[in-house]
């Protein structure tokens, strides 16, 4: 069948293209319904990527965060009309030790090949996760982002020592908010601190025990702020945040790095060594992280409601002009997610 694809050809320019989808009796036909704009998509749209990257990757359909409706499933795993969340990471091999999202052979939607700004999409059944019940579809649209935070927590649980009484999250933006909310639910007894440079953004994390402006952190002597820390700052703020985390974490603590920095970051390795800290990176997620995130939301419907405050705009999209509108609105947001109600 003919599928209409909306591809970014150059920063700020979309083209309408058509392609044939071959229903092969093995893949599930889904229709994207709710699409969430990610900062990575916004960087392509704005042209904030190196020219050689843009040349290599465009034209390409953007968006890797999506909730979709099942149209037809020849395998019988899903029913028509079910809301699912497609996993944008598509592994081509299995590795005993390396997770699917770290395998160089894996492909990722809206980074190298077409994302979800399409009329229909064909997906392998194992790349679909049922959207959590009682969670608004706008929130399910960014389950991918929630799964990324879940993946980082999952890794932290494997790497970090067992004293988890004081946890801290640097950065109160989308990733920091979600990470802190997940930690609140998974470790209700821990003292949870969220730190940022923006008081307004900090105020969203009302569930945290402490919300601190980074300038408010004053430690004396051997005093520490937390047992483990999560960096969710990214960008130019990465360096100062990581170095403050190194200063604030107790010896043998773990530092989870989630923020993307376009430049190299200088860090205080002397103190990393002296304290015996563990730092680990985390990027993207796999199908099991989606599943764990979805089930956690299902068991805690109030979390879905709390995540609803991240939805800053819902744009009804029926034309290319509406896609531009969504991206331009999103570019003005300091906090929150722009969701497209995909009616195209």
């Amino acid at each position: 069948m003919i599928d209409v694809v909306y591809r970014l050809t150059a920063p700020g320019m979309f083209e309408v293209a058509c392609q044939e989808l071959e229903l092969d009796g093995r893949q599930v036909l889904i229709r994207p319904r709710w699409l969430s704009v990610c900062k990575a998509d916004q960087r392509y749209y704005q042209g904030n990527r190196a020219p050689e990257v843009l040349r290599a990757k465009l034209p390409m359909a953007l968006i890797h965060e999506c909730a979709a409706e099942v149209i037809h499933d020849p395998t019988g795993a899903f029913q028509p009309g079910e809301l699912v969340v497609p996993v944008p990471n598509l592994p081509t091999q299995f590795d005993e030790f390396i997770a699917e999202n770290y395998l160089p052979s894996s492909r990722f939607r809206s980074s190298g090949f077409d994302g979800f700004t399409q009329e229909y999409v064909l997906s392998e059944p194992d790349r679909l996760v049922r959207a959590p019940e009682k969670t608004p579809p706008e929130v399910s649209s960014f389950l991918e982002l929630i799964s990324v935070c879940m993946h980082a927590i999952d890794r932290w649980e494997r790497f970090a020592h067992g004293r988890r009484e004081r946890l801290a999250v640097w950065g109160g933006g989308n990733v920091g908010f979600i990470t802190a909310l997940l930690l609140r639910r998974l470790y209700p007894g821990a003292e949870l601190t969220v730190l940022d440079i923006n008081e307004e953004i900090l105020s969203y994390s009302s569930f945290a025990d402490r919300r601190l402006h980074v300038d408010q952190v004053k430690l004396s002597g051997r005093e520490t702020l937390c047992d483990h820390a999560f960096e969710c700052v990214g960008g130019a703020g990465c360096g100062p945040a990581i170095n403050q985390m190194i200063d604030c974490v107790a010896p043998e603590g773990s530092l989870a790095l989630l923020g993307v920095s376009e430049t190299n970051v200088a860090i205080n390795t002397r103190m990393v060594l002296e304290k015996g800290l563990r730092m680990f990176g985390s990027s993207r997620s796999g199908a099991k992280d989606f599943d764990r995130a979805a089930r956690l939301l299902e068991q805690n419907p109030r979390m879905g409601q709390a995540l609803g405050c991240l939805v800053s705009d819902v744009v009804d999209v029926r034309s290319v002009a509406d896609i531009h509108k969504a991206f331009r609105l999103d570019a003005q947001q300091g906090f929150g997610k722009t969701v497209m109600n995909w009616n195209i």
């Binding site: 003919i2 058509c18 229709r31 009329e119 029926r318 009616n343 195209i344």
Partner: peptide, 8 residues
């Protein structure tokens, strides 16, 4: 003969 009709 209009195969490019869309879902919308």
């Amino acid at each position: 003969v209009r195969p490019f009709v869309t879902h919308r």
